[in-house]
Every structure is written in structure tokens, then in C-alpha cells.
Design a protein around this nucleic acid. Sequence first.
DNA 1: ACAGCTATGTTATATTATAACATTCCGAAA
DNA 2: TTTCGGAATGTTATAATATAACATAGCTGT
Lengths: 133, 133
Amino acid sequence: MTQNETFVYQLLCDADRPLSAYNILDALRDKGIRAPLQVYRALAKLVERGAVHRIESVNGFVACQLHDCGGNEVSIFMLCTQCERAHEFTNISIDSRLQSLSNDLGFQVAHKVIEITGRCADCQTAQTAAPKH
Amino acid sequence: MTQNETFVYQLLCDADRPLSAYNILDALRDKGIRAPLQVYRALAKLVERGAVHRIESVNGFVACQLHDCGGNEVSIFMLCTQCERAHEFTNISIDSRLQSLSNDLGFQVAHKVIEITGRCADCQTAQTAAPKH
DNA sequence: ACAGCTATGTTATATTATAACATTCCGAAA
DNA sequence: TTTCGGAATGTTATAATATAACATAGCTGT
């Protein structure tokens, strides 16, 4: 892992929610990261190797919360609009159904996205944003 | 449906692939649409009422291909990276599993996104982009 | 007529992402 | 040890996507 990738990855691991590339840029100025491309390049590598996931619904990035996703199943993200936290799951059954739907149609899958936005259990209980872990 | 919404919706119905807001803007200049907000406002209304879906993976918009999606199941999109066409499906089983996964976790669902990118059957056969319909 | 609501229009700006090019670093081959 | 080549880095500029803030117009019910 190169230096910039390490900075970005550590930051994402410490964060409790998806960060945008520009959030990351701002947070890493003091590490000598000055331009968006430095961040985007590190993110591209990290995503490629499954250490980080891109969250399409919020244009953000999170560290993989599972087995450092070499795994091939889709990750399912639940995204709380209130506390902004992202929880990652896998579900064999959902994944295999999606895969067979694709197979039936002769569609060659490159990437799958499953994202659910809403309000997490903690935030519903709290009526206000749940405290950080 | 207001005038701007009609313009945008018609354009999306005629298109055979997701269009970006700026694609739409450019296409509707001669209808008197001049600013991004005019497009984004129309899109927001159309999406709200289920006539149009936003495709997160490509930052684009497509007209609903089903029952003018008052329906509540998730739409599953297959997005071909070659011909750029989007095909929309529903699948009760996948949807209900996703829903019960959420229920089990006490997550209150507001919106679900399922998008699969890859290569459609036509494009695999053709080795080159499939012709338009 | 007027109050209030929705739709519209306009300008400016914020946010997200990439192109194009120059430089540096480091390991393997000569 | 030098040098070649590829990967990583850095820098500037710009493209693409999205919203804020404010002004105006049109329509409806009283």
C-alpha cells in the first residue's frame, strides 16, 4: 500500500460514515495531500482491491466492514439519512437471485450495487441522531 | 404535469438510455429551457411521482419502463456499459428479502437502489454495440 | 383586488470528477 | 553502477453534476 493509499485508508477506517473525496482531501492536507487527484487515485486503487467501497447514493467512500472484501458477493449497504452511518451486509440468497436473474437474461455482470437509504434503528429510538459509537 | 415536466418526460421516453440532466438541458434549449435548475426541478417532480428513475451508477435519469411506478417494489436496473441501455425489472422475491433484512434490523426503509452494470446479451453477441431498437 | 401558493426564470456558486502534463522514486537488467 | 522503465506523485486546469438565493409571473379562492 503506497503512502497516499495508507493515509486515505486509515482515515476511512477511523471515520464512522462515508466520506466524500473532498472530505478526505481536507482531512489530509496536513499530510501533504493537496489535490483531488491524489485522493481519487488512492481511492481507485483501494476500491479496486476491495478495501474500500464506493457508495453511489451519497457519492462517498467507506472502508470495507467485512472480510476486506476479496469476497465476491454483493455488499448491501444500509445508509441512515440521519446519523449518516453506513452498515454493510452480505446476503447469499439475495445475491444468488440477482445473479440468476442476470444469467437468465444473458447479462454479463461486472458490478452490483445494492443500497438502502432510510433511518437506522438507533436513530428511530433516539428521535435525534444516535451518538457515535 | 407542467410544461417543463412534459418536455423532460417526453425526452426521456424517447431516449433509449439514461440521460444526464445536462444532456436534457442541451436537448431542450429550443423549448426555452436554459438553466440546469429548470431541468433538475422537473426531474425532482417526475422522480417523486415515480414516472422517472434516477440511476445512481451513472448520474442519469430514465423514464419508468413499467407500470408508471406507483408500485412499491424496488426497480432493478441492468445497465450495459457498452450500448448504455438500461433495462428495468422487478423481482418480488429479491425485494421481500431485502425488506425483511431491513425489518430484522429495525431499519426504516425510505428508498432502495439495485443496479447491475455489465454487458447485455445483445452486446455480447454483437461484439460491438447492439443497434438501437 | 388581494393574499397565498405553485411554477418559472436567472445568476451565481458549490460539489464531484477527470484530463493533460511534468517530475520523482525505485527496482531490475545491462 | 549506471541506466532504463514503470509506478507513483504532484500540479494546474477544467469538465460534469447539483444546489442556493433571489426575483418574477401566473393562477386560485375569497
